[in-house]
Nucleic acid binder design. Structure first.
Length: 424
DNA sequence: GCATGATCATGC
DNA sequence: GCATGATCATGC
């Protein structure tokens, strides 16, 4: 056995090995079997960060082993290598702190979790469907197009080095695909953590709770969601309001389109539970009577100090875009001003747009910030995205690495681009 | 009509 | 006080 102190300086990936070796006295194995072979239990150490509201939040997604593209296409969910290895998880959550030794991390939550028993039925079904979506994409020869936005709770995230070497063969296409691993999304982990901490989120409400598991199984969560909106298509917002029992006169909220969108799903509370778990972002969109979309779509503020230290592959913005799915609830104005529900659509950013256009703009943005420039890529410079102010006012500024203070800005998806995505 | 800059409204 | 979603204002 190695001296425990020699581990203290190693990287976070070694924390799991450390626990296995020094806490449980087993030698680390990284292949097909669970860590505790006889018990069939897989150990996972998961970093947490502090959170004002909920005490702790997951620092990152929970990553399992690499997807073997060549063999997974012959598997079935129930007997899959994923389930075989990861069905029983020993989850050890620790509070991450930068700059301290691994040996000084404090564990905050330890739970044993049976993926097929301890989660709500609907969740298990959705995870299974996610697995099937991923496998069917590989079967269609589209492993290179996989993205975390494809699925809800379980996702295929990139894993391994970012160099060319990390591309590997896939069975149904000649195109090489990035190496990826199965993972639980950060959003889903956060809900699990909440549960483990005994916190109940009284603000969110499920819209699948009254739907029989069989139907979730048959139709899939996306179709069920879209079906919820069907009875309202082409209705004006007044008609929708009276149908769902929402009284405009009582409360004239500015976010009435969002309230109506939730009400059509059957949710009265402020948050949609399944969307919280899946990291699905609700976007209500209002088109002009001509079908034109006026406004671009904003994203979180750019931290100028952080972005210059990031690589594109691991950047905050790439992570945000590629790990979220969006639900566009699209309304359109008539010539006479009446607003009606036009279309509802799930959207995730297409791989090529992300890796070509957004990447180009991101790299250019990083370059200009490093140079101390205040002029960041404009809408006219790329058809997909641009950078623009997003601040309270001109005085709302943030420090840059060159020491200047510039107005808070963020990435925006171009209005025209979103409009095209809605139409296609 | 459109690009770009600027700011409002809301909720935590 | 601040992040976030949404929208306004201006000038070409």
């Amino acid at each position: 056995m190695e001296d425990i102190n020699s581990y203290g300086k190693k990287r976070k990936g070694h924390l799991g090995n450390l626990i296995e070796e020094f806490v449980f006295g087993i030698s680390p194995n990284s292949f097909k079997k669970a860590d505790f072979i006889k018990a069939g239990v897989e150990l996972k150490t998961i970093p947490l960060k502090s959170d004002k509201k909920r005490k702790f939040k997951a620092k990152e997604r929970l990553v399992f082993s690499m997807i073997d593209y060549m063999t997974i296409i012959n598997e079935k969910w129930e007997t899959s290598s994923f389930i075989e290895k990861n069905r029983m998880l020993l989850l050890m959550f620790y509070l991450f702190q930068s700059g301290i030794s691994l040996l000084d991390y404090k564990f905050k939550i330890v739970e044993l979790l049976d993926l097929l028993k301890d989660l709500p039925q609907a969740d298990i079904e959705i995870i299974k469907q996610d697995w099937e979506i991923i496998v069917s994409k590989i079967r269609q020869g589209k492993a290179h197009e996989l993205s975390e936005g494809n699925t809800n709770y379980l996702a295929a995230c990139t894993k391994g080095t970012t160099s060319e070497k990390s591309y590997r063969k896939q069975p149904c296409s000649e195109i090489k695909a990035k190496s990826r691993a199965l993972s639980l999304k950060t959003a889903y982990l956060n809900k699990l953590i909440e549960k483990f901490l005994g916190l109940t989120d009284s603000e969110s409400e499920s819209y699948l709770k009254d739907i029989p598991i069989d139907e979730v199984r048959k139709s899939g969560i996306e179709n069920i969601t879209l079906k919820k909106f069907e009875p309202f298509l082409s209705l004006s917002i007044d008609e929708i309001a009276s149908k769902v029992g929402y009284d405009f006169s009582k409360k004239s909220a500015k976010n009435y389109l969002e309230i109506l969108a939730r009400a059509m799903l059957g949710v009265k509370k402020r948050k949609v539970e399944e969307f919280e778990k899946a990291g699905i972002i609700f976007k209500t969109i209002k088109l002009e009577h001509t079908g034109r979309l006026k406004e671009s779509m904003s994203f979180p503020i750019i931290d100028y100090m952080d972005i210059v230290k990031e690589t594109w592959e691991e950047s905050t913005f790439r992570d945000y875009l590629s790990s979220h799915k969006f639900l566009f609830v699209i309304f359109q104005k008539c010539r006479n001003g009446v607003i009606y529900l036009k279309k509802v659509k799930f959207w995730e950013i297409p791989y090529n747009d992300l890796e070509n256009h957004v990447k180009k703009v991101w790299i250019e943005t990083q370059k200009r910030i490093r140079q101390g420039k205040e002029e960041l890529p404009k809408m006219s410079e790329d058809p997909v995205c641009h950078v623009r102010p997003h601040a309270r006012n001109k005085k709302d500024r943030m420090i840059t690495p060159t020491g200047t203070m510039i107005v808070k800005k963020c990435f925006w998806l171009n209005s025209k681009y979103i409009q095209n995505q809605i139409e296609s």
